[in-house]
Design a protein around this nucleic acid. Structure first.
Lengths: 229, 229
DNA sequence: ACAATAGTGTCTATGAGACATTATACG
DNA sequence: CGTATAATGTCTCATAGACACTATTGT
C-alpha cells in the first residue's frame, strides 16, 4: 500500500445570488477564524461524516439566511488544487443558490459578519475574496447567466407569485442589459408551461399587472438568448 | 473541535466516449480488486496527495488508453453520497472525455480487462455497472449530447483532419438520430470559425470531400439543436 | 386630461428544415 | 454510361427583434 487515500477534507461553498432593488447581489461572509481572518469569502463549511455535499450546502444556507424552502440549489463544479487551502487538502464542491430577496443575512459561528454585496463589486475586483473564491464566484455567476437563456431558472429569483415585469427585472439584473418589455411579455406568455396566471392582479400606478406562478416547464424551447453573446 | 474533517478519499472517475464504426462507445473496465470484483465500472482512481482531480483524470486516461493528447476532458459533477462506496467516505469527481477512435484499451493494474462498450448496452440496462456508475454515466452522456448543440465539441471525436461527413457521423452517433447532410453542410460551413478547410481532399468512391480542421470558435451561435428535444 | 405601466399587433430579417439540383469522383 | 458521395440552391415556415399602438389604472 502506498499512501492512505483517506486524508482529504471535503467542503461545500455557496454562491448565493439574489436581487435587491433591481441589482444582483451575492452573499458573502467576513471570516472570523483562521485562515484569512477578516477577508470576505463565500459561505460554506466542511461536509460532515454522515452528510453528502448537498446536505452540507443546505445546512450552510439555512445557517446564513434562515431559509432553504423556495431556494434553487444546484452544483457547479469541484475545486481541488493541492494548495488552494493552507490547512491542507481541502476539496470543495461549489453550489449555486438562487433566492428571492431574503432580507439581511446572519453571520454563522465562524464568521464576523455577513452581508449582500453587489456582484459588480466582486466582478470588478474592487472587493477581493479569500482562497480561490473569486474563480468559484465567476464560474457560478456565468452558470446562472447562461441558464437563464435555456431554462425557467429566473423564477427562482421571484416570490411564489410575480408579475411579468418582475420576471423581466430578473433578466435585466442578472444579465446587466435592458430587455424589451413587449417582446419579453410575448416570449414568456407564449411559452406554454413557463408561467401560469393566478387570476390575481396587482396595482402599482399604472395598468394593473397579472400575477403568475412558475409553471411545470423547466427547459425553454426555443431559448431566450441574451444580446451579443 | 468535533470531528477531524480530513477523513475523506477523493477519486476521479472517467466517462470516456468514442465513436467506433458509427456507434458511440464508452470505455469500461472489469474490476480486478475488491469491492465489486468482476463487475464493469468506469475507469478511475484516487487523487494522490500532490495532484488535483484533473491530473488524476489525465493519469487514469493515459493508463487505460495510452494517450492524453488530442482528448477533450471536462468536469461533469461530483458524487458524495455517504454510502456510495463500501470502503468508506469516497467522494468522486466525474470527468467526461471525448476522443477519436483510439483502438483497444489496456487494463490498468487493478482491472481484469478493459474494453469499449456501445453506450446503448449501458443505457438499456443490459449491462449494469458497479457503485453509482450508471448515474455518473448517464449525467456525462447527457452533458455530451447537450454540448454538441451549442459548442464545437463534436470535433473532439474526430482526428485532426476530417470531412464534413465524418463530423456529421459524430452528431448522428451521439444523438442517435439521422441528420440531413445538405442542411448540416450549410450550417457547419456557414458558421465562421467552427471548421477551417485544409485545402486537401479525400477520395472514397464519390465526389472527393474537402478536409477540415477545427477552427478557433468553441461556442456555436446560433446552436444546432437536435430534433424534438 | 395626463402620466405611467400592462399588454397586443405589425413588420422585417434571419435561420431551420424539407428537398431539388449540380459537381466530381469510380466502375 | 450509371452510381455514389459532395456541395450548392430554393422554397416555406417560425421566430427574434424593432417599434407602433391600445388598455387600464392613479393623480
Amino acid at each position: 500500500m502506498d499512501v492512505d487515500p483517506f486524508s482529504f477534507a471535503v467542503a461545500a461553498d455557496l454562491v448565493v445570488l439574489t436581487i435587491r432593488e433591481r441589482v444582483l447581489h451575492v452573499l458573502l461572509v467576513e471570516r472570523g477564524i483562521e485562515p484569512a481572518v477578516g477577508m470576505w469569502a463565500l459561505p460554506g463549511g466542511f461536509v460532515l461524516p454522515e452528510e453528502d455535499a448537498e446536505a452540507t450546502a443546505y445546512r450552510e444556507l439555512a445557517e446564513e439566511t434562515g431559509v432553504t424552502a423556495g431556494v434553487h440549489l444546484e452544483q457547479v463544479r469541484t475545486y481541488s488544487a493541492p494548495d488552494r487551502d493552507p490547512r491542507g487538502r481541502v476539496v470543495t464542491v461549489a453550489w449555486l443558490a438562487l433566492a428571492p430577496d431574503l432580507g439581511e443575512p446572519s453571520a454563522g459561528s465562524d464568521a464576523r459578519s455577513a452581508r449582500w454585496w453587489p456582484v459588480s463589486d466582486v466582478e470588478s475586483g474592487a472587493l477581493s475574496l479569500a482562497f480561490d473564491h473569486v474563480a468559484i464566484f465567476g464560474d457560478a455567476l456565468e452558470r446562472a447567466r447562461a441558464k437563464l437563456e435555456y431554462s425557467a431558472l429566473a423564477t427562482a429569483f421571484c416570490p411564489p407569485e410575480f408579475t411579468i415585469a418582475q420576471l423581466r427585472a430578473v433578466y435585466e439584473a442578472v444579465w446587466g442589459v435592458p430587455v424589451d418589455p413587449r417582446n419579453f411579455h410575448r416570449k414568456i406568455t407564449g411559452t406554454p408551461g413557463f408561467v401560469e396566471p393566478t387570476g390575481e392582479v396587482v396595482r402599482d400606478g399604472g395598468r394593473p399587472a397579472q400575477l403568475f406562478r412558475r409553471g411545470p416547464v423547466s427547459q425553454l424551447q426555443p431559448p431566450f438568448t441574451r444580446p451579443e453573446h
